[in-house]
């Protein structure tokens, strides 16, 4: 499911609210979550999970192609911790056929 699929589904469940409005709200939800994380705020959605920004320390890495040492500076990374209810729901989820990995392309 993508964001547009999510909007469709939510709109179907809220027939008294226009799809356009649903779309605006869905976008605002994620925008405000991104801004909270940007401010270093922790997000806690009960029954779902929590998001938190952690700092990855600077380290010396290596260019895997050339073997050359490179400096990787410290960076902030978001982490998600699944909530108890969702964790249990997911554990009981049916097996779906494995899809081809498309995480890289999809994450943009």
């Amino acid at each position: 499911m993508t964001k547009s699929g999510l909007i469709e589904d939510v709109a179907r469940r809220t027939p008294h609210i226009s799809k356009k409005d649903t779309e605006v709200v869905v976008n605002t939800i994620f925008d405000s979550m991104i801004e909270a994380l940007k401010e270093g705020d922790r997000i806690e959605i009960r029954g779902f999970g929590s998001f938190q920004v952690k700092i990855r320390e600077a380290r010396e890495g290596r260019n895997p192609k050339t073997g050359e040492p490179v400096h990787i500076s410290a960076k902030r990374t978001p982490f998600f911790k699944v909530g108890k209810e969702l964790k249990e729901m997911v554990d009981r989820s049916p097996d779906l056929p494995e899809e081809a990995e498309d995480d890289e392309a999809a994450s943009v």
């Binding site: 999510l6 589904d9 939510v10 469940r13 029954g47 969702l86 729901m89 989820s93 779906l96």
Partner: peptide
């Protein structure tokens, strides 16, 4: 909706 989708 997100939860139900993941539960599937």
């Amino acid at each position: 909706v997100i939860k139900e989708t993941l539960a599937r």
